[in-house]
């Protein structure tokens, strides 16, 4: 077995190099697609964090939306366009809001948790739709980002965004992998199985769930910042429940064993979406629904379980 201390950073470096390498050869539309897929993958990763504790959030669109609005409003109000600063702000706002929401949400389980997260997201949707000073239902445009003073345009902008997205996705993924492997990470899995027991072992289930929810909000906000900058526009739809539904879809598709699988699933979904938009414009949801049913039926633990099986087979040989 490989020394686990170096395993995570090493995998991160390898994956990052591979992603950037791919960026040099793929066309611009594919780069945009990959940027969006990774950004949304970050949000889905948040759901996966919660899934490990047995919860599904049907409202991660809330943080996706907040991140995107932060990137849009900051440029308009303060002229900040630096992507790193915007990311930090987006994460910060998300984390602060999540800390408040977590107090309420950590007492709920199962369907109640799902519906409450959904309703929080829909409250934001409703509020933003009515706020005409920031665009109402039309939303607002987001200025192109700068990168530590560097202001690229055209293909360079697309590539810079892609590069940045790969970087933060890999870093976030690495940290979350470390968390999954940690003592707290194992406790989360135990909560999924038997919350009562965990409480009787002296661990606080509520604080574990709050921690997971706040982490999920952080990556959700980060994903939102990137998506807003990549699209160049943000509107309340980011917080609509069907947007959150797609994140849940990615999380279910990937399962909660592998972080790579989350991003891979997100990429698969974006590719399927592009092709159905092109060839079957009216049956995108049909494709998505059938796909979802097949995954649930055939891969109850998601794509990640396939990865794990392969890895285990590799280990035993």
């Amino acid at each position: 077995m490989m020394n686990s201390r170096f395993f995570v950073p090493l995998s991160c470096v390898i994956i990052f190099s591979a992603l950037v390498g791919i960026g040099f050869i793929i066309p611009q539309w594919a780069m945009f697609l990959a940027t969006m897929a990774l950004a949304k993958g970050l949000v889905a990763l948040g759901i996966v964090i919660l899934m490990r504790a047995g919860l599904v959030s049907f409202g991660q669109g809330l943080y996706f939306c907040i991140g995107a609005y932060v990137s849009g409003l900051m440029a308009n109000w303060t002229g900040i366009t630096d992507i790193i600063l915007l990311s930090i702000l987006g994460i910060l706002v998300s984390v602060i809001l999540a800390t408040v929401c977590a107090k309420l949400l950590s007492g709920y389980r199962g369907i109640f948790f799902a519906m409450l997260t959904l309703s929080l997201s829909m409250i934001l949707y409703g509020a933003l739709s009515k706020m005409s000073m920031i665009g109402g239902t039309d939303g607002l445009n987001v200025s192109a980002p700068t990168f530590l003073g560097f202001a690229p345009e055209g293909r360079a902008l697309g590539f810079s965004l892609y590069f940045y997205t790969c970087l933060v996705s890999v870093i976030a993924g690495g940290f979350i992998r470390v968390y999954f492997n940690s003592e707290r990470g194992l406790t989360a899995l135990a909560i999924r199985d038997n919350e009562l027991r965990v409480e009787y072992l002296g661990s606080s289930v509520k604080s574990a769930i709050s921690a997971g929810y706040i982490m999920a909000a952080a990556v959700g906000g980060l994903g939102g910042v990137i998506a807003g900058l990549a699209i160049g526009h943000v509107d309340p739809e980011y917080a609509y429940w069907t947007t959150s539904g797609e994140f849940v879809f990615v999380a279910i598709l990937s399962g909660f064993f592998s972080i790579t699988a989350v991003f891979a699933s997100s990429i698969v979904l974006e590719i399927v979406r592009s092709f159905s938009n092109l060839y079957f414009p009216n049956t995108w949801q049909l494709v998505l629904g059938v796909f979802l049913l097949i995954v649930i039926l055939l891969l109850p633990n998601g794509l990640g379980s396939l990865f794990n099986k392969l890895r285990r087979r590799g280990d035993s040989e």
């Binding site: 470390v178 003592e183 707290r184 194992l186 406790t187 072992l201 002296g202 661990s203 921690a211």
Partner: peptide, 11 residues
């Protein structure tokens, strides 16, 4: 892990 009040997010 639960017996240890300072259960870690990293270890």
């Amino acid at each position: 892990g639960s017996a240890n009040e300072q259960a870690s997010f990293f270890r």
